[in-house]
Simulated scan of single mutants.
Amino acid sequence: MQKSDYFIKGILESDEKVVAKIYNLFFPKVLSFVYRNNGQREDAEDVFQKALLQISARIKLRKLEVINTSFEAYLFTACKNLWRRELNKKQKRVTNDEVKELVSEESDMAYALLDQERWELFRDKLEQLSDNCKEVLNLFLKKVSYDQIVKKLGYTSETVARQRVFKCKAKLIEMIKADKRFRNLK
């Protein structure tokens, strides 16, 4: 049994030993991320718990069979997405002086699950691109300057690098839109 399967089975069966192991192994990284992004320990604990619930719900509802990355990477991505969502909600509450109705917990979880599925579709299609497109888009997404992309990949000019980024993005969008999951995630 792969480690991912071990953790998934433990979550599904509410195995206290496995859940405790998940906390011991993976919570420190999430805690560090939340601290670095204006959060407290309680925030990290909430996010971690929500991510585990989200994974559990996803497994039960959608029959999540294979995690293409490690369980740790999958869980961490879910936590990052949930924390960013929390930060965005807090920012909206602060920037809008009026009191707004808060989204229910169930609705919030549904949106978080949808975000996670969109992220997985994006990652799946990104992995299907050519190695050059993957490298170009990864540099672009990391906000590496076109000048640096030219030097790193040996292109002749920034115009060539821009065209390559454009073509790779277009191919990625085309692949995502062609996937049957896309219609359900719109």
Results as ranks from 00 to 15, higher is better:
38 N>Q: 06
97 D>I: 15
66 V>S: 12
80 K>R: 10
69 T>L: 14
93 R>W: 06
49 Q>I: 05
131 D>S: 14
110 A>I: 02
95 T>E: 14
60 K>N: 09
127 E>Y: 11
55 I>D: 00
44 A>C: 03
66 V>D: 07
76 F>A: 11
139 L>F: 03
63 K>Y: 00
147 D>F: 13
113 L>K: 02
74 Y>A: 05
83 W>I: 07
47 V>M: 00
93 R>Q: 08
49 Q>N: 12
121 L>K: 05
128 Q>G: 00
149 I>D: 05
137 L>T: 10
94 V>I: 15
118 R>Q: 02
100 K>P: 00
75 L>R: 05
53 L>S: 03
44 A>S: 13
150 V>I: 04
108 D>G: 07
150 V>Q: 04
78 A>K: 01
96 N>Y: 09
48 F>L: 00
139 L>M: 13
104 S>C: 14
97 D>R: 14
87 L>H: 02
88 N>W: 06
138 N>L: 05
74 Y>T: 09
81 N>S: 14
140 F>R: 00
129 L>A: 11
120 E>Y: 01
60 K>D: 08
108 D>Q: 09
145 S>K: 03
105 E>L: 12
81 N>G: 07
143 K>A: 00
149 I>G: 05
89 K>I: 07
95 T>Q: 13
112 A>K: 02
86 E>V: 08
146 Y>R: 01
131 D>F: 11
149 I>E: 06
62 R>I: 09
138 N>G: 01
143 K>F: 07
80 K>H: 05
148 Q>I: 09
69 T>Q: 11
43 D>R: 08
128 Q>S: 00
51 A>T: 11
100 K>A: 15
43 D>G: 10
152 K>R: 07
138 N>R: 11
60 K>C: 04
73 A>R: 09
48 F>M: 10
130 S>E: 14
102 L>D: 15
136 V>H: 04
82 L>T: 02
90 K>I: 06
97 D>A: 15
112 A>Q: 03
148 Q>D: 14
146 Y>M: 08
90 K>T: 10
132 N>Q: 01
83 W>F: 13
135 E>K: 15
80 K>S: 11
82 L>E: 02
106 E>H: 11
64 L>Y: 09
125 K>N: 09
146 Y>S: 05
125 K>Q: 14
103 V>Q: 13
127 E>I: 06
145 S>H: 04
118 R>A: 02
73 A>W: 04
91 Q>P: 00
97 D>F: 09
83 W>N: 01
60 K>E: 13
152 K>D: 15
145 S>L: 05
63 K>P: 00
139 L>S: 07
68 N>H: 12
47 V>K: 01
43 D>V: 14
122 F>P: 03
43 D>L: 08
139 L>R: 04
59 I>Q: 10
